Amino acid sequence: MLITSLLPLLARYSLGCDLVAGPEGRVTLTIIPRMIEGTGHKPEAGEIRPISLTAGAAEIDAELAKGEDGALGQLIAGRKALADQLEEQRQATEAARAAAATKIKAEAPSPKPGAAGASAQAPDSPPADAKPDEPASLW
């Protein structure tokens, strides 16, 4: 049941598992999502936060046997939904950026011939008719 519960995460991440015995028969199961090498997707910090369960071995087995209805299954389903929403948001943001860039290019005025000299002058440079031996005038 563990692997079946983890399948939604395995589709998106590489997973590491850590199993530690604790006092009084308690066990801690930690599942660590990691980036899959070679993908362009950079996950958010919340997406790759480890999942940790601490309980008795029988309790963890019983919870895993519930599959999608168990705590681990519900947590993984919630994380998958969150990751899907983040990916949709990334795609929408990229599409909006591309549309804005296209719109700006389409609306940008094309330079007119003869106006190149006026637009090429820097705002801090002296006027074209300024004489080097005379101070510039504002009037």
Rank of each mutant, 00 (worst) to 15 (best):
T4A: 15
T4S: 15
S5K: 02
L6G: 01
L6E: 08
L6Y: 03
P8H: 09
P8V: 11
P8F: 04
L9R: 06
L9E: 05
A11K: 12
A11G: 15
A11Y: 03
A11E: 15
R12H: 13
R12K: 12
R12D: 11
Y13Q: 07
Y13G: 01
Y13K: 00
L15I: 08
G16R: 15
G16N: 10
C17V: 13
L19Q: 04
L19C: 06
L19M: 06
L19H: 02
A21L: 13
G22T: 05
G22K: 06
P23E: 07
G25A: 10
V27Y: 07
V27N: 10
V27Q: 08
T28P: 00
T28C: 08
L29Y: 01
L29N: 01
T30E: 11
T30L: 08
I31L: 03
I31A: 05
I31T: 05
R34A: 09
M35H: 00
E37R: 00
G40V: 04
G40C: 00
H41D: 06
P43R: 03
P43D: 04
E44P: 05
A45Q: 06
A45K: 09
E47C: 04
R49N: 10
R49D: 05
R49P: 04
P50V: 04
I51E: 01
I51F: 04
L53A: 08
L53S: 05
T54D: 10
A55D: 15
A55Q: 11
G56Y: 06
G56K: 13
G56I: 00
A58E: 14
A58C: 07
I60R: 13
I60F: 07
I60E: 11
D61A: 14
D61I: 14
D61M: 12
D61S: 14
A62S: 14
A62E: 11
A62M: 06
E63P: 02
E63Q: 10
E63S: 01
E63R: 02
L64G: 10
L64E: 08
G67A: 11
D69S: 15
G70M: 15
G70K: 05
G70N: 13
G70I: 13
A71I: 02
L72E: 14
G73C: 07
Q74T: 12
L75V: 13
I76H: 02
I76F: 07
A77V: 08
G78A: 14
G78N: 15
G78P: 10
G78C: 12
R79D: 01
R79M: 14
K80W: 03
A81T: 12
L82A: 15
L82D: 13
A83H: 10
A83V: 15
D84L: 07
Q85I: 03
Q85M: 12
E87I: 00
E87N: 08
E87K: 06
E87M: 11
E88P: 02
E88L: 14
